[in-house]
Design a binder for these strands. Structure first.
Lengths: 148, 148
DNA sequence: CGTTGATGGTTACAAAAACAACCAATAGCG
DNA sequence: CGCTATTGGTTGTTTTTGTAACCATCAACG
């Protein structure tokens, strides 16, 4: 019972997205993995903290779409490397505010610059219109209408 | 040392790709996971076999970009559920040719139809041009110029 | 106030993936 | 032939992730 016009895997968007995501992430991984021994989740958390200021773990979860256990472990690892510090919010002792240390901020500067360069180089092969369309479509698909 | 014009995570393509890939994959996962208890890799392997005929494990690895250990284990699982059969190629006994059973083919038909529907629904919110651009850009990024 | 229910966050355990070592079969070459 | 290198594939072991249960703190309502 094969379909009349079987559709190719190349036309299945989730598959394409996964392949492209994997390829580009693996490429960029070299930066944070070899230089700083970080995992992807740790890099994401670090980026959020560096870019969007001190945040609670919950805020990172919401903005970055990372599960709270993953975030918790990433923060533990980042803290062990002395890239972030935790501080309990006295007004509501359930929250802990996360801040980058000076060392963490330096890593963020280095990596975010590398990310920007990588991104520029990656997108250089496409036209402005293609890049704009890609961004718009992906944002919509990821339901990233607000925040990140 | 914050950058003069810090760039947003929303502009970092690998991040967007990961978010979109995760969102769509999680959506579609419901189909093969709840109905057939399959894992993503298993679904991918099954799809390749259903769509592109009997293949060796190596061929699947190359075409689908899946590591050989993952493929091996996926095949073992699919065989246990009697969705595929292995047959050693006598001309070169290192190869084993994988084929879908009737049951496996039925699952493929069901799931590929579901995939096509899901994809159509996902892309319905975009214009033809957007969809075409997305496909072209993703194929290029994933370096999927040949095969899948 | 006191009890119930959220909420932010961590920890314990199970599932899956990454990585490396391994085995059997074959190709290539002296 | 016989030795070494390569190839297709599997298995073992360690990391990483997912899932669920848990703890502490606070909000809300009687």
């Amino acid at each position: 019972m094969t379909q009349p016009v079987p559709f190719h895997l190349r036309d299945f968007t989730p598959y394409l997205l996964n392949r492209a995501a994997e390829t580009t992430s693996l490429d960029f991984q070299a930066h944070y993995k070899s230089r700083y021994g970080m995992l992807r989740t740790e890099w994401r958390v670090l980026f959020h903290l560096g870019r969007y200021g001190p945040l609670t773990a919950k805020a990172i979860c919401d903005r970055a779409g990372i599960h709270k256990t993953k975030t918790s472990r990433a923060v533990t690892a980042l803290e062990a490397r002395r890239f972030v510090t935790r501080r309990t919010v006295e007004a509501d002792r359930r929250h802990t505010l996360l801040t980058l240390t000076r060392a963490g901020a330096a890593v963020f500067d280095d990596l975010s610059a590398a990310a920007e360069r990588y991104n520029a180089q990656l997108m250089a092969q496409f036209t402005k219109e293609e890049a704009a369309t890609l961004r718009r479509v992906l944002l919509r698909m990821a339901a990233m209408d607000a925040g990140d």
